[in-house]
Write a protein that binds this DNA or RNA. Sequence first.
DNA 1: TAAAATATGTCAATATGGCTGACATAAATT
DNA 2: AATTTATGTCAGCCATATTGACATATTTTA
Lengths: 167, 167
Amino acid sequence: MDLLSSAGGAGAAELSEEQTLELIELLFFAYRDFTSDPDEILEGYGFGRAHHRVVHFVGRNPGIRVAELLDILRITKQSLGRVLRELIETGFVFQKEGDTDRRQRLLYLTESGKDLAQQLAAPQIDRIRAALSACDGDAHGFYRDVLFHLINAQDRANVRRLIVKPE
Amino acid sequence: MDLLSSAGGAGAAELSEEQTLELIELLFFAYRDFTSDPDEILEGYGFGRAHHRVVHFVGRNPGIRVAELLDILRITKQSLGRVLRELIETGFVFQKEGDTDRRQRLLYLTESGKDLAQQLAAPQIDRIRAALSACDGDAHGFYRDVLFHLINAQDRANVRRLIVKPE
DNA sequence: TAAAATATGTCAATATGGCTGACATAAATT
DNA sequence: AATTTATGTCAGCCATATTGACATATTTTA
């Protein structure tokens, strides 16, 4: 084992500032291009990135409460309100009263909403698969672990619970 | 704090749609938190994320041309114009006429600009170092390679040239 | 040299997606 | 019965992006 290894990782010394800045920039460029495909599709519907996020998370979490969506997106209910109203008016999302708590407005995608979600996800899925195919070994595992640890420590448990779906 | 058991490998089969969707969501959450630290700092200056991007890329590429900055940010010159003007008026950026081409307005950070860039980068550097320390082995290399391959293929050479600095 | 292309800047109008603050309603909890 | 919670909405504001048109200076080209 390397004598200079850091405590947390398994043998990796701390990155230089230069190396870290490269990663900062790579994340910017990757995110820029990653969002560009759905952005083009959304234009055809008169929607923006905010609609994409709502459609995505409602699609992945049918029956999600408004409060939870707000916590995911970290925006105000006023901001979400407009986007949600548009998605409901145009028939991509619908609301259902909560079973146990009738104050809740549980959110679901309509069939059109599911189609849209799939259409938006497709190019991103392709892009990720292509990127991982171009990398060696367990790139998937490492990529996933690094992203996970970039999330605020106090939010990681919530995120894991949210994204990992039981079979 | 491991997320999932990882069983990838070289020449591994394509990721399932479910696995890919998890990566899509992780990128969203990682980016959300990654940008939150500088966002707070920027507020104190009355700046936004657009100012951050300009300060960052001018700081990393002293003497960058406006056209190249536009290509990096993928925004219109009108959008850049306002942000750039504010940064110049407040003394964080200055322009210099190009040596060979006097139409060019080469961009540089002032000392205040360098301070600001460093201040904005610091929490992101810390966050990346902490994330990589929490991961095994060559997480850095894999993370870097995946991000690189998420970039549009036709842009990768440009990005590499831009982010890798000669010693 | 004149014409065209390039690098940059700016004015005006518009759209999206955030924000704060205030207030309202219905339903659950205390 | 009073309070809290979950949600919605009105109004106004701000930041950041857009398109289109036009201006200026400079370089390149025919």
